[in-house]
Amino acid sequence: MDVIRPGSLQDCLRILKTEHTIPIAGGTDLMVNLALNKISPDRIIDITGLQELKEISLSDNFLKIGALVTFSRLAGKEIAQYPCCNALREAAEKMGSPQIRNRATIGGNLVTGSSAGDGSVAILALDAQVELTGLDGIRKVPLSLFYSGYHQTAIHSDELLTAVYIPIRPGTSSFQKVGKRNALAIAVASLAIYSYIRDSHFEQIYIAIGSVAPTPIRAVKTDLFLQGQKITSGVIKEAARIIQDEIAPITDIRGTADYRRKLIANLLADQLQQLSESKN
């Protein structure tokens, strides 16, 4: 197995064209898969030298986060200044451990396509788009269309996920997860909400959930129900009921399907309760 460190994005994309070649950034998922013999590439492209993928910038009301931005940075002040991106900062704070947060990148978290990916679930609630770059050009894909199946995404093997674009809007977002312990925990269930409340009513709300389906998913029916509603205890109860019907989790080593359903309902109710108390 060869490891190649390209000097530019163009070089990187050229090498990526060759068969059995995969990029590595933080390696926090990829190295595990290598160790378990789940993948056996001929070439690994180390993209960590590509400085242009490490930028965070704001233009046209979109926050562009480079694919190589680490979770440690996402948990820091660069994101904290945008209330609508709180969910991402909160997810970054809770992901893995300090060692993993120092290495793991947002791009890696997204392309791994794990249903339990903390960053993925948070960003999914933020109505974000991903930038996929190939030799033939750049395409932008809404994150809600990016995931196609269990650990499968819309990215082609010769493309690199180069950035994620998050619309900067009024409103706030939040992220919560339940793991089997307080750190280094893969989510048993996770839930993120972006919402904008005007005159006590939801002007806009997007809910994303993790670890209840093959991919992170949006709770569209629950969104629709909450749209235009005022947060009352009755609404919270009904939303918690709808979201349980909307999902079809499985039983695995981390929890039963029933437990996951209850967790999602409780996570939703708790975050809605917090929203009602903060008065937005």
Binding site: R181, A183, I186, I253
Partner: peptide
């Protein structure tokens, strides 16, 4: 809180620290 070698059909489910849940300093 979480440690358990769970055998199914004679094979342990928990063959890695990812699924054998030791507490960390946070717990």
């Amino acid at each position: 809180l979480g440690e358990n070698m769970n055998y199914r059909n004679g094979i342990p489910d928990n063959q890695r620290f990812t699924v054998y849940i030791l507490p960390t300093a946070e717990d």
